[in-house]
Amino acid sequence: MPATDDRSAVTAVITSLIDAWRRHDADAYGAQFTEDATYVTFVGTYYRGRRDIIESHRTLFATFLKGTRLADEILDIRFYGPDTAVITGRGDSYKGGKPKKPTKVQTYTLVREQDGRWRIAAFHNTKRKPLMEAISFKTAPTLVPASRK
């Protein structure tokens, strides 16, 4: 069973990520990732390495994601040994006051590095398609995840 401190620490990484996004601070955003992290966007773009993540977000914050904030909802945190955690959640970028219902499902793999800090080693973001999901569940009920039954 993970220590409460570890759960708080990995959650704090996600909180720092959201805060860096709010400030459109690509360097602070990228600092939450390991040097060799992988990052897959919902459109399928694959980035490798902290530098790539920082530079892509520097561009995104100045263009397509300008003025946006990040909504994130943690669904599950699992630890695989003392130095590896997997967080599954929902998230989305939004503009304005209140976030809409998150349309993406995200997986973060975090590792505790030698300096004792938790950082994201891999991130995967998938666009959720509720209509397709509902149709598939209706036509093939055995596809419904046990957690939703």
Rank of each mutant, 00 (worst) to 15 (best):
M1Q: 12
D5E: 13
D5I: 12
V10W: 02
V10E: 00
T11D: 04
T11A: 11
V13H: 01
I14L: 15
I14C: 01
L17S: 03
I18R: 15
I18T: 13
I18C: 15
D19A: 15
A20F: 05
W21P: 00
W21I: 06
R22D: 08
R23V: 04
A26V: 03
A26N: 06
D27L: 06
A28D: 14
A28C: 13
A28R: 11
G30C: 06
F33V: 02
D36M: 06
D36F: 09
A37Q: 05
Y39A: 00
T45M: 14
Y46R: 09
G49P: 09
G49V: 06
R51W: 07
I53N: 01
E55V: 00
H57V: 05
R58H: 13
L60S: 15
F61Y: 15
A62Q: 15
T63H: 10
F64E: 15
F64R: 10
L65M: 14
K66A: 15
G67K: 14
T68P: 05
R69V: 02
E73I: 11
L75N: 07
I77M: 12
G81N: 06
P82I: 00
P82M: 04
A85K: 01
A85H: 00
I87W: 00
T88N: 13
R90D: 06
G91N: 10
G91P: 00
D92G: 15
Y94A: 04
K95P: 04
G97Y: 08
G97K: 07
G97W: 05
P102M: 09
P102N: 03
P102D: 01
T103G: 14
K104E: 13
K104P: 03
V105F: 14
T109E: 05
T109P: 03
V111Q: 11
D115R: 01
R117A: 11
R119P: 03
A121E: 10
A122Y: 11
F123M: 09
H124F: 07
T126W: 03
T126A: 13
R128V: 07
E133F: 00
K138D: 08
K138C: 04
P145H: 09
